[in-house]
Design a protein around this nucleic acid. Sequence first.
DNA 1: TAATTTCTGAAATATTTTTTTCAAAACGCC
DNA 2: GGCGTTTTGAAAAAAATATTTCAGAAATTA
Lengths: 288, 288
Amino acid sequence: MSNGITADQLMQRISEEYEGLSKQLKVIAKYIEEHRPTLVLERITDIAQACEVQPSAIVRFAQRFGFSGFSDMQALFRDSFAPAQGNVNNYQKRIRTVIASQDTPLSNTELTQSFLSACQQGLDELSQSLDPAAIDAAVELLYKAENIYVVGVRRMFPIASYVCYALQHTQKRVHLISGLGGMYHDQVRSIRENDLMIAISFQPYGRETRYCARVASQNKAKLLVISDSKMSPLARNASTVLTVKEGTAFAFRSMSSTISLCQALFIALSYRLELVIEETQDAGAYDD
Amino acid sequence: MSNGITADQLMQRISEEYEGLSKQLKVIAKYIEEHRPTLVLERITDIAQACEVQPSAIVRFAQRFGFSGFSDMQALFRDSFAPAQGNVNNYQKRIRTVIASQDTPLSNTELTQSFLSACQQGLDELSQSLDPAAIDAAVELLYKAENIYVVGVRRMFPIASYVCYALQHTQKRVHLISGLGGMYHDQVRSIRENDLMIAISFQPYGRETRYCARVASQNKAKLLVISDSKMSPLARNASTVLTVKEGTAFAFRSMSSTISLCQALFIALSYRLELVIEETQDAGAYDD
DNA sequence: TAATTTCTGAAATATTTTTTTCAAAACGCC
DNA sequence: GGCGTTTTGAAAAAAATATTTCAGAAATTA
């Protein structure tokens, strides 16, 4: 009974009609969307279990979209499966040649693919160049500090603000040096011995960050630096330096490695603090 | 009964012992070697038919190599399929077992490696699931908008702030809805037709972001949503939805894919605007 | 070539997986 | 709050799939 439709078209229809589905069918729709690649392998019972519904609900879902049953729907995914492989590599090759022979302009997707592969490379390199001693030291600094000041400007401000967000999930007092109102000075003023400053700075090493780091070390606070080189101007006074070399494409530096390292650091800290990570359920009231 | 072997090792053994097999089993061995990628999808009868043998012959084949039956052997291929890359998985498995058998605590580096590999997976998936039409549409929205409002709260605030930072490098007027002073309402108020709102929101879909998106669509502005599902509550009013499935480790979602997608989007926009990207030298006076 | 062993095909049986059915629960509407 | 409708859960029934069995065919050996 399968209507001569493609898997993509089906996904399209599912998302179009999502709002009109019952609670249970919504759960299933989401699951299907999120697990589309592995869907061919899963049995109806696997999916049912994952969605915490009865197998019959899955059948009802399939029927709701015009299939005779689950098997019928699965056949669709099975068909659209085979030609999925080998695509990625071709893409990469294609891009390399297109770039080499500056003739055809790049499509948005090609640009994106190309940048994503730079991100991958960056992560790869980070993963390979991890310095266990530095990481241990960093985690230890975090563990011991009760007050943590975080600074990063311009390109690195998002990272700094993420670090703050994450650290708010611990018992520590966390201070984001945002520079709001130009008040860098006022925001670092109160740092002192036994406090920790996390300074995130890459070339060309923002002046404000350097200033804050200087104040921190003048006040004898600990300094954890996240930067692109052990020789960065910030490294001099640092208790520990974590280095990250980001991937680049089109003269544009990725940020995936830096943010991933920061997240990893937080995970390691949580583990050390024996915190249960439940990032999903934050700030109850706001998130309904 | 499956011997703790990998799919590769099995293939190895099959080719080693090939000569000693009966005529029928040789046919099956060949078939398996040649169709390894699709093997997970095929039923015993499919294979039997393709080899022009009885299903029982397939079972005998599996048993000949130490499996309890066909299903058992297929499970091996199934396992070696989903998690794709070997390196990554071993790590993940290792960690899973270490966690399960609470004996040795994980080192910080192990935690970090493991999380980084989740990030990689996320990027991988993003790269494979890119929807060219959606990306084109997103770039077009950006290209056409003169005023761009960006909103993302809590976990997604860093992303939103990065998007703003990047867009400041174009001629467009960019407004970050920071909620500073609780003034979400006041910050979106002035959005109107022909403006664009970029809303970044993942489960559990922050209330503030939903509010802003609603205002945007009430005011007939365009809405570009970056989210984890086409069925997210924000998607309903969106002009375009870009979906990102992040990798997870330790119940912790990575952010690398989301930020990379945003960066890629910016690159594509710059390309469209024929901008030369020189992110390195920004804001002269401040940096150095 | 006869005896013995190994291999094969077909069908019976067992198992797993999917689908259907139906009663109970939840929901929406007066 | 009662009534009809829709949704859901559980389990029975059906279908699909895998495994075992066994008799006969091929191959091997003496």
